[in-house]
Design a protein around this nucleic acid. Structure first.
Lengths: 225, 225
DNA sequence: TTTATAATTGTAACAGGTACACTATGTTTA
DNA sequence: TAAACATAGTGTACCTGTTACAATTATAAA
């Protein structure tokens, strides 16, 4: 059989989504090297021989953005031969939803949040990767309250509803949303109130200790009798 | 920064599931080469420089099993450094549900179906890959009638129900199943009846022209007003 | 004290899912 | 040819969850 070169460069690229300033934003870094030097890109880097893909994604994210200790989920592997203009690079994309406050510190001119609704020109196929992560996020949201990954530790139900509306791209009925939100397992009503509004203060809620035992915990559904 | 070798061997591995003899089965081939020579494995092979991952998966499947023209979906990429005993090989797994009748011809001593409930010892991490494909298949089934990929062109509702029961691993109520099945978009009632049973013949159904426009068609849900 | 603004709350109609048992039809056999 | 058999086929009541929809409450600002 035809004998062709069999080794490839493999990278991991990471889509980090958050809600900031009332919009859904993605963490981008400005590329320091060719190709696409100066263009914005999602954080990414080469996979080392000794590490698995999850480890590579976490290491790369830490190196490039100083973001650590977050739950990354494998998204999809992109392997078009032309996705990299110079060599053949296959990339395994990961994504995560996080609270902006957890990594606010690290914003610099070369590392910053961008609204997903108004992205700058991106390197490689990173636009496609971000779009795919949005799709996946919506699917998750329909199944479980992933919003706790996006909200501050203490939040109002209105903030939670806004998060859902931003991700789903449509507005929701306030009463129905609250009714359902209050049924969410792990949601805890606090005896504290938001003071930011100059009107009636809203009650704060939090999620009790988040359980992320399994990598695919998102998929676990309630047992039907 | 620490400079490590950056290229990896990349393979694609393909899980082909079908229903045969009243059980869910997976297509395995007996390995001709080390490592794991003589052990059963899902079909797989190296990705070439010039092809994307989908193309590689389809080419490899065709080469190894002569199966062609089926819809493969990317499943997950497995990259544990120890998953291959000799070198570091990252594999991008694909899966498909097909009608056994479509490829019945190619069964040989080295290419054969095996019940997923009773698998032989498998090479590499292929057991894990198959388990993951089953999980994904169940998730799909809850969302849409993927059964048309598994059933013969003409089928009875009882056959369709059996397919669901095999995949979901639980029995379903006949009346409720039929009620819902009959609502399935694209299901066509035929004026033909099954003659295999020695008792009352069952009406045959088929699916009208299957639309697989988008790669992720599985995920498309009906628009809510 | 009044006003403005956001927070908070309930109910009726509807849709979809579940549980559940008998009748119909063709084949086999006595 | 009639009775027995085995699988195909069917409807309803209940429960659960979703949707649509508007008035009242609480605080800060004026």
């Amino acid at each position: 059989m035809f004998n062709e070169i069999k080794t490839h460069e493999i990278t991991v690229d990471i889509v980090i989504l958050t809600i900031k300033n009332n919009s859904l934003q993605v963490l981008l870094i400005k590329r320091q090297n060719e190709p696409f030097k100066g263009k914005w890109a999602i954080p990414g880097g080469y996979v080392r021989m000794s590490e698995n893909l999850d480890e590579a994604a976490m290491r790369v994210l830490k190196e490039k953005t100083n973001v650590d200790n977050i739950y990354l989920e494998q998204l999809y592997t992109f392997g078009d031969p032309l996705r990299h203009p110079i060599s053949r690079v296959i990339t395994c994309a990961y994504f995560a939803l996080i609270r902006a406050e957890d990594i606010e510190i690290i914003s610099t001119p070369d590392i910053d949040w961008h609204k997903v609704s108004n992205l700058p020109p991106l390197a490689f196929d990173h636009k496609e990767i971000i779009n795919y992560s949005l799709k996946r996020t919506r699917e998750r949201l329909e199944m479980c309250p992933v919003a706790y990954q996006l909200l501050n530790e203490k939040f109002t139900l209105t903030e939670m509803q806004k998060a859902y509306e931003l991700i789903m791209g449509k507005s929701l009925d306030k009463r129905n949303f609250r009714k359902k939100a209050l049924q969410t397992e792990g949601l805890v009503e606090l005896d504290e109130f938001s003071k930011t509004s100059s009107k009636r203060p809203a009650r704060l809620y939090k999620f009790e200790t988040i359980k992320l035992n399994s990598k695919r915990a998102h998929f676990i559904k309630k047992e039907k009798k």
